[in-house]
Measured scan of single mutants.
Amino acid sequence: GATAVSEWTERKTADGKTYYYNNRTLESTWEKPQELK
């Protein structure tokens, strides 16, 4: 079946920190989402 992984995108802030952005829920998080573990 379909997985939720594609909803999350790994992004970088202007100062180079990595965060994760969810295209479906429009939420962002510093922690790696469960779906990516």
Rank of each mutant, 00 (worst) to 15 (best):
N23H: 12
T3A: 14
A4R: 07
K37H: 11
T13P: 00
L36F: 12
P33C: 03
G16N: 04
T13E: 03
G16S: 02
Y21N: 01
S28H: 09
N22A: 00
D15Y: 08
G1K: 08
T13H: 03
V5K: 09
W30D: 06
E35R: 04
Y21L: 04
G1A: 14
Y20N: 00
A14W: 10
S28G: 05
T3Q: 13
N23S: 14
Y19A: 01
T3L: 12
K32P: 08
K17A: 08
K37F: 14
T3H: 13
E27L: 07
A4T: 14
A14D: 10
E27M: 09
T29R: 13
G1H: 14
T9L: 09
K17W: 06
K17V: 09
K32V: 11
T9W: 06
E10F: 03
D15K: 05
L26F: 15
S6P: 11
L26V: 03
L36R: 04
V5Y: 11
N23R: 11
K17G: 05
A2V: 14
R24K: 10
T13G: 07
L26H: 15
A4N: 13
P33S: 02
T3N: 13
S28A: 11
L26M: 15
T29N: 04
S6R: 09
Y20S: 00
E27K: 08
Y19K: 02
Y20A: 00
Q34G: 11
E31M: 08
R24E: 05
T9D: 09
G16L: 02
N22I: 01
W8N: 00
A2W: 10
R11F: 11
A2L: 14
T9M: 10
E7M: 05
N22E: 00
T13A: 07
A14R: 09
T18R: 06
T29E: 03
S6K: 09
P33G: 02
A2I: 14
N23W: 15
Y20G: 00
T13L: 04
S6Y: 09
G16K: 02
T9K: 05
T25L: 03
S6D: 10
A14H: 10
L26K: 15
T18V: 13
G16W: 02
Y21E: 03
T29L: 06
E10H: 03
N23M: 14
E31T: 11
Y21F: 15
R24D: 04
T9F: 09
Y19N: 01
T3E: 12
Y21Q: 04
Q34V: 12
E7S: 06
N22K: 01
G16F: 03
T18A: 05
N23T: 15
L36H: 07
T18Q: 04
W30R: 04
E31R: 07
S28V: 15
Q34R: 09
E27N: 04
D15N: 09
Q34P: 15
R24P: 00
W30T: 07
K17R: 15
T29W: 05
G1P: 12
S6Q: 11
V5F: 12
S28N: 05
T9I: 14
D15C: 12
